[in-house]
């Protein structure tokens, strides 16, 4: 009973395999074993969203609450995997253009979360502030929708106003 397992996943398109302690979270695997330090450790309890990464496409999750051992075969995208070479992802560019950060600690999580939030609204996922009689189809990215959809990402600098503007520009 040694409490270790072999796990294999893809991180930003690159295969990563290793025998790990079963207690290793995805966040710790990324930061301490794979050298991918974009996802940040804020609260480490799923409350702040600084560790947000994308699983198997656009499924945003808190990397701090996922055991890496349970993700064998998964495809993980972090903020490092969003840009196309030297060209920033449109959400990254919008955060720069709108000054959507101050200290920057929450930003990698904010950006990953926003990429998924935009995809979800386009796919017609309602949020709790979407009126129940809204017809199927893409959801209009109002400020209220963006605030609700991004509520899992806290910013202690309070850059929310500019974050909403950045997300809104790309979502439109």
């Amino acid at each position: 009973m040694d409490g270790t397992s072999e796990v294999g996943l893809r991180i930003n398109g690159k295969p990563f395999s290793r025998v790990i302690d079963n207690r290793t979270t995805l966040l710790d695997l990324l930061r301490e074993q794979a050298g991918v330090t974009g996802p940040k450790k804020g609260c480490d309890h799923g409350q702040c969203g600084a560790c947000t990464v994308l699983l198997d496409g656009d499924r945003r999750v808190n990397a701090c609450l996922l055991l890496a051992v349970s993700l064998d075969g998964a495809d993980v995208t972090t903020v490092e995997g969003l840009a196309d070479g030297d060209r920033l992802h449109p959400v990254q560019q919008a955060f720069v253009d709108h000054d959507g950060f101050q200290c920057g600690f929450c930003t990698p999580g904010q950006i990953c979360s926003a990429v998924a939030a935009i995809a979800e609204a386009r796919a017609g996922w309602p949020s709790v502030v979407t009126p129940p009689d809204t017809p199927p189809g893409p959801v209009e990215p109002t400020a209220a929708e963006i605030r609700e959809r991004m509520s899992g990402n806290l910013c202690r600098c309070g850059a929310y106003v500019n974050i909403v503007a950045a997300v809104r520009e790309v979502a439109r």
Binding site: G46, G49, T52, L55, R59, R60, V61, N62, L65, L66, S113, A116, A117, E120, P126, S127, V128, P132, R149, S151, G152, N153
Partner: peptide, 19 residues
């Protein structure tokens, strides 16, 4: 079952609901 959809969307964050 709108009560169920609304309850789920009221809970936690999208990141947590996705897991």
């Amino acid at each position: 079952y709108p009560v169920l959809s609304q309850a789920l969307l009221s809970g936690a964050s999208t990141q947590l609901r996705n897991a």
